Simulated scan of single mutants.
Amino acid sequence: MTKIISLFNNKGGVGKTTTIFNLSASLAAAGNKILLIDFDPQCNLSIATIGYDEFGDYLERTEEFPFGKTIRAFAQPSLQPTQNSETYVTQPKYQKDMLNDGIKTIHNQIIIDIVPGDFWLNSFADILTVGTDVVQGTGLYRFLVPFLLVEHLERKEKSYDYVLIDLPPSFNTLVRSALYCSDYFLVPCTPDSFSAYCVSLIGEVLPTFIDDWNQGKRRYESSNQYDKVIPRKGQPKFGGWIFNGFDTKKYTSTGERKEIGADKAHLDKIIEKIKNDLIPKLQGISSYDCLPNFINTEPVVKIEDLNVMASEIQKLNIPLQYLSSQRPTIFDGWSSYQKELMKRMNGQYDFLAQYIINNFGDENRS
């Protein structure tokens, strides 16, 4: 059973793209087939995973590929019934290199696929209309493009255990669309006041998203009572949150590593907002249980500030799991401290992957 997971926060710079890339590597290392969908018009996930120049080739429109070989090739024709949607996937550059080096994946298959993003998604966001498409129930399927894309790939005999969707830092229609398609959403946060504010804002906004969907669903079902898809959508569950980009200090007297004072204060503030604002608001959603029984107020994982390593992940197109084996672009080699930090943080991504494997199964909808 495929699980669709969105990484979502209204705030930019919280590490959504980096988290998805590193999480996909950990989930794949655990033997899962992964699909990444770049649903952000900034296309950072596409650039990070497949490379800047290579991504440009996928954007190119030709007579043979009139919409390029990106998500646009599926999404735009879906708005024009006379044209056929198509799906194109590629693989992370590092996995292609691993296969060339003779490193095998499970069942000798590449186990991470990517649907590249497209700057055209800005136009697609403008085309989607909440009032008509969702609330009036006349275009609910227009808001299910990520899910329909996954189904289209399944018909081409490409199935996945997990689909991870990267999203823009907003509450626009692309975010609505992904959440309506998702089984779960994860919320990355950074140590700043705006992250705490955004957590509260999610509690305000998500219930309205669900109310809008339910209004449209009731209208749609009145004349489409045998539809099997729409009743199961519009029910994203809160899968937990991730604390990203903080600094720590190791105390020599105890050997314990803790967040520095300012970052610890922000962590406590986010926990307070989740406890007092987000969770009560999500509990108020009556149409389904948005809060699984494994949820609490603490972050699922804590990812320290990777500093230069985060930029090297983007430049080298390789996740943290394999970064220490690569020569950096701006200096001769990694220090022992950097290698130790990579090891510890990769352990956090592995823990996040196992958390998803353990918890996002029985709770999932059929």
Rank of each mutant, 00 (worst) to 15 (best):
residue 139 G to L: 01
residue 4 I to W: 11
residue 358 N to E: 14
residue 202 I to E: 07
residue 106 I to D: 04
residue 244 N to M: 14
residue 310 A to L: 05
residue 137 G to S: 04
residue 323 L to Y: 09
residue 301 V to S: 15
residue 275 K to V: 03
residue 96 K to N: 08
residue 196 A to F: 03
residue 295 I to P: 12
residue 288 Y to F: 14
residue 324 S to M: 07
residue 49 T to L: 09
residue 184 Y to G: 13
residue 259 E to R: 11
residue 220 Y to H: 05
residue 205 V to S: 02
residue 261 G to Y: 10
residue 330 I to C: 05
residue 12 G to D: 03
residue 241 W to M: 11
residue 352 L to C: 11
residue 183 D to Y: 08
residue 289 D to S: 15
residue 304 E to C: 15
residue 216 G to T: 00
residue 85 S to N: 07
residue 348 Q to R: 15
residue 197 Y to H: 07
residue 188 P to R: 02
residue 131 G to S: 05
residue 120 W to G: 06
residue 113 D to E: 06
residue 73 A to T: 01
residue 57 D to N: 15
residue 77 P to Y: 02
residue 91 Q to H: 13
residue 297 T to R: 09
residue 364 N to K: 15
residue 134 V to T: 00
residue 317 N to T: 13
residue 141 Y to W: 01
residue 31 G to R: 11
residue 61 R to Y: 01
residue 232 R to Y: 06
residue 257 R to S: 14
residue 78 S to G: 02
residue 259 E to G: 12
residue 321 Q to H: 15
residue 113 D to Y: 05
residue 39 F to Y: 12
residue 251 Y to R: 10
residue 252 T to H: 04
residue 123 S to M: 02
residue 329 T to Y: 01
residue 344 R to E: 15
residue 67 F to W: 09
residue 297 T to K: 14
residue 306 L to Q: 10
residue 188 P to E: 08
residue 297 T to E: 15
residue 271 I to Q: 08
residue 274 I to W: 00
residue 246 F to Y: 12
residue 156 K to N: 13
residue 303 I to T: 14
residue 49 T to M: 06
residue 190 T to V: 10
residue 162 Y to R: 09
residue 210 I to A: 05
residue 335 S to C: 11
residue 38 D to P: 12
residue 87 T to D: 08
residue 44 N to Y: 00
residue 24 S to C: 12
residue 224 N to H: 15
